[in-house]
Design a binder for these strands. Structure first.
Lengths: 192, 192
DNA sequence: GGTAGTAGCCATACAGTGTATGGCTGGTAG
DNA sequence: CTACCAGCCATACACTGTATGGCTACTACC
């Protein structure tokens, strides 16, 4: 394997994705260009294509890398209401770490086919909340989109842009409590 | 005013925005380029700049045009639960007409500072639901993000991509009923 | 009526993008 | 020793947004 003329060692997928993630975090997805990434790595732009199919594949891998770092809370036996609050909080913290990437993922969710362990944890909690099996998928989907949109908006500084409301913590609290109350009520799952 | 060499009449903002909206609806925001738009209008690309500041201003105007067509239901005296369902449904129908643009607006809400009449209608309904004045802004914000994310996802064919759930109508129904129940419960607005 | 001003349009050019193509080099398998 | 090929790179193409400057024909004013 011939290594680079201007670098000591060959490129690794790891450093490519890490560096790309850094660029995205710093300037948004639109600030990530193959040329900038290459310069950052001290390498010719075309060299990247020996490790990555194309730019969309690169971003998908970067997204996967970020998602893999989502810290999911374990089942601690506490009531489902509390576990749901904790899960939402964890998702929020995670989103604040990569706001630009979150915004991209929201618009291109194909990048993550299976949401790592997120779906499993959420399903368990929803079952505990009494959501019937036939509505589990739909409900999980809805809740992920709800929370995802909200934390992405907050991370992108887009909260309060429509209404002037400014206290993000309060908005998030209201959001979570609305969901908890709605689930507890269970009216959405009544047999027709 | 010298009119075009290759067109009979001067460009109008109207036809520019209409055509741009058509392009966006057809191929997404990324399919809208100044050159394509110009060709579509039978005009030189640079001619557009006499009517539009730059591309982001163009998109903002296109978004405004689309938003102005949102059909908001009037107060018909029915219970707030019902009015909220109708409002959500109207938003959904509207979003399905311009899915690509919705996705863009969700990621760049700065394009619409004041959501036309949407905020007013929503505020009225929330007041009727008993949401205290100090939480009105936050709650409205949260709900708009909730519903907006969901219908954008549906319009973009991104629903079911995370969980495999496929019945969009059912997902939407669950979403709305969760919100209605949550508001009715009112636990989110209890004094600390 | 003549003239200055300008609205509208266009040609050219520049810096940037993703990536297809093909060639070089040096380590490794047979 | 030879063939192969992983890794890297130089060049090139089509595309993007838009800065600059020039042309033309209409309007406003003297």
């Amino acid at each position: 394997m011939a290594n680079s003329a201007r670098r000591g060692e060959p490129l690794t997928p790891g450093e490519i994705y890490e560096t790309a993630l850094r660029l995205v975090d710093a300037g948004g997805v639109e600030a990530l260009s193959m040329r900038k990434l290459a310069t950052e790595l001290g390498v010719n732009p075309m060299s990247l294509y020996h490790h990555v199919d194309d730019k969309t594949a690169l971003i998908r891998e970067v997204a996967r890398l970020a998602v893999s770092r989502l810290q999911l809370p374990a089942d601690d036996g506490s009531p489902w209401q509390e576990q749901l609050r904790v899960l939402a909080g964890a998702y929020r913290v995670y989103a604040m770490r990569h706001p630009a990437l979150m915004s991209y993922i929201d618009a291109h969710p194909a990048v993550i086919q299976a949401d790592s362990g997120m779906m499993a944890v959420l399903s368990r909690i929803l079952r505990a909340a009494g959501v019937p099996e036939r509505d589990l998928g739909h409900t999980a989907e809805v809740l992920i989109w709800f929370v995802s949109a909200l934390v992405t908006a907050e991370g992108g500084g887009m909260l309060g842009m429509r209404t002037g409301a400014v206290d993000a913590d309060r908005s998030f609290e209201i959001a979570v409590e609305l969901i908890v109350d709605g689930l507890a009520q269970g009216g959405a799952f009544k047999r027709p």
